[in-house]
């Protein structure tokens, strides 16, 4: 079954900017899928269209076979989103943030309590449970939005640059966690600027540029497609910056490669 089936998706903003121009992506259930592209390529717009935060101007989106645009209730129930910018309510405590989110998805109170305790523990937030979210550090906020995205046990988890600006420890913690839930069956759509992250985690990767999918496959497929040695060079070829390839870096005399 397809976890996500996007066909000919278009998004034109009122100011005339065409953010998505006929994007088609299919992600199989249980897959770990990466979406790479430069800033402004359309990654976040695609995610926003999928989660109801933006309204497509054309095309279709189905999540586990349910329409995600017009009759979206079932589709949205299946999706968890950890957005790029921490969008947490300053008035709420850490525990309330999780509890309310699960409530929006119809989870009964007893189950919410159990799940909140479980995720607070998983993301090392138990000690912060009664603190207002505005007092959290950047890393803690990042943990919280990931925990929030997982609260209602989504079958499709969308991570929009989840490791941007986080320390090494949290990044590795996150990698372990998402690999674990992916192995347990959760489908994951990841956008990232860290190519090694995509290479290490993703089964398949798509390159998006100027609102279009320009290449798709495993990291080896993409390297072959651009006739280069690895994913990073394929990406540099995509953005027209081949000269930045590490293979072009000349080592100083006396320095061993």
């Amino acid at each position: 079954m397809k976890a996500l089936d996007i066909q000919q998706l278009e998004k034109r903003y009122p100011n005339g900017v065409e953010a998505l121009r006929g994007v088609s992506v299919e992600i199989a259930e249980g897959e770990f899928f990466g979406l790479l592209g430069p800033n402004g390529a359309g990654k976040s717009t695609l995610i926003h269209c999928t989660t109801g935060l933006a309204q497509p101007t054309g095309g279709s989106i189905e999540i586990f076979g349910s329409d995600a645009i017009d009759h979206y209730a079932d589709a949205r129930q299946a999706v968890g989103l950890a957005p790029q910018e921490p969008n947490i309510d300053w008035f709420l405590t850490v525990a309330e943030t999780l509890d309310y989110h699960a409530g929006y998805f119809g989870m009964p109170r007893k189950e919410r309590r159990r799940r909140t305790a479980e995720l607070l523990e998983t993301f090392s937030l138990t000690e912060k449970r009664d603190e207002r979210t505005r007092t959290l550090s950047g890393g803690m906020k990042r943990r919280l939005i990931l925990a929030r995205a997982m609260m209602h046990r989504p079958r499709l988890l969308i991570l929009d640059e989840p490791t941007a600006g986080v320390d090494v420890e949290l990044r590795l913690e996150l990698w372990h966690y998402v690999q674990k839930i992916n192995q347990e069956g959760t489908t994951i759509l990841l956008t990232t600027h860290y190519l090694e992250e995509a290479e290490q985690l993703c089964d398949r990767i798509a390159f998006i540029a100027e609102g279009q999918i320009v290449a798709e496959g495993t990291s080896e497929d993409l390297a072959a497609r651009f006739d280069v040695a690895n994913l990073e060079d394929a990406y540099l070829a995509l953005v027209g910056r081949k000269e930045l390839s590490r293979s072009h870096i000349e080592l100083a005399p006396g320095v061993e490669a």
Binding site: T51, G52, L53, Y72, A73, D74, R76, Q77, V79, L81, P83, N87, I88, D89, W90, Y100, H101, Y104, F105, G106, R148
Partner: peptide, 9 residues
């Protein structure tokens, strides 16, 4: 923060 409600069912 309103995105949390808007992306719910």
């Amino acid at each position: 923060a309103i995105q949390d409600q808007l992306s719910s069912p």
